[in-house]
């Protein structure tokens, strides 16, 4: 039985870790780009950001004042039991969001869309979002906090099978160029692409691909993995770098997640997880033990199951998170 107080404490710690500590995989990606960037202004921006990550950790202050829209991803082991049940878990996450906003401090970004009412704690109507997934044969709970900017860099388009890979490239270029100018997308970014599903699923898959996979991680389908690399290179060949200055630092990595879709369509979404890619994960074990990490390990083989039945030990060996 996992106590709700433990979950709230862990969630508060995750809010701080996400806001303050840039994940190692993303940091390594930015360092790599700073070394190869030929555009002098773009390189200056990357060096300033590397300095900023250090200052955030030294001072224990948020790396970016725009908190984005803080939100939660919860992976529940099928055998995990929570004191008070899922309602208590949700209450713990909402309480932690509010208290961490005040304690860190974070900017209270969340307001009513019409009345602009601000509760000053990033909690409100349908906020924070809590997304769930499940894992067979596990008795732990994984909590992941994500603080992602919310205004620029994301778009959706209904493509058709006849558009093919050309259509995917065209829409990606349209999005990166439009939001890359003046650096509105806060690039270089982890670009997440959702392909297929219904419209809402397509947006969710792309968002999760951007926020919940690490730099260097590849889709287990080798053809999709190859497309990820091709689209990453395409983005970095635009001639645009950080803040829209001349350069090549646009896409730190590209992640694609696919879902079976309507036979007549190929919906696509693009999401940019920015220069302040903020995510932090903790596994809360059944005995109360806690392990913190920066890889959400969200896309398990179970998440990507393709057929009716799920086998816990697939002979394909396609296990990859």
């Amino acid at each position: 039985m996992i106590s709700t107080q433990t979950l709230q404490n862990v969630a508060e710690e995750l809010m701080a870790k996400a806001a303050i500590e840039i994940p190692d995989d993303y940091l390594a990606g930015v360092k790599g780009m700073a070394e190869t960037e030929e555009g002098d202004l773009s390189a200056f921006v990357l060096r300033a950001m590397l300095e900023n990550y250090e200052a955030a950790k030294e001072d224990r202050r948020a790396m970016c004042a725009d908190t984005g829209v803080p939100r939660w991803f919860v992976k529940l082991g099928n055998e995990a039991r929570i004191e008070g049940g899922p309602v208590a878990l949700e209450a713990a996450l909402r309480r932690a969001t509010a208290s961490a906003t005040h304690e860190i401090p974070l900017r209270p970004n969340r307001v009513h869309p019409l009345w602009r009412t601000d509760h000053n704690n990033n909690v409100g109507l349908n906020a924070p979002e809590i997304d769930y997934s499940f894992e067979p044969e596990a008795n732990w709970i994984d909590l992941t906090a994500v603080h992602k900017g919310g205004l620029f860099g994301t778009d959706y388009r209904m493509l058709f099978p006849g558009d093919g890979i050309d259509g995917i490239k065209r829409f990606l270029l349209d999005t990166l160029i439009a939001f890359g100018k003046r650096g509105l997308a806060c690039q270089p970014a982890i670009v997440g692409i959702g392909l297929g599903g219904s419209k809402d699923t397509c947006m969710v898959l792309g968002k999760q691909a951007a926020c919940l996979r690490t730099v260097g991680n590849r889709n287990p389908d080798p053809r999709i993995a190859a497309l990820e690399m091709e689209l990453k290179d395409l983005g970095n060949s635009i001639g645009m770098g950080a803040m829209g200055f001349v350069g090549s630092s646009m896409v730190i990595d590209c992640h694609i997640e696919a879902g079976f879709t309507h036979t007549g369509g190929m919906p696509m979404s693009v999401h940019a997880f920015c220069l302040s890619s903020r995510r932090a994960t903790a596994r809360v074990h059944a005995d109360g033990g806690i392990d913190y990490r920066t890889d959400p390990k969200w896309f398990t083989p179970y998440m990507r199951r393709e057929t009716v039945e799920w086998q816990t030990d697939p002979a394909s060996g396609a296990r990859s998170a």
Binding site: F44, V45, A48, M49, E51, N52, Y53, A55, A56, D59, R61, A62, M63, C64, A65, D66, G183, C186, A242, M243, C274, L275, S276
Partner: peptide
Amino acid sequence: LTTVGYGTGALLGR
């Protein structure tokens, strides 16, 4: 004047 990044929130906070 434009901020850099965006954004160098911790450096500016400091």
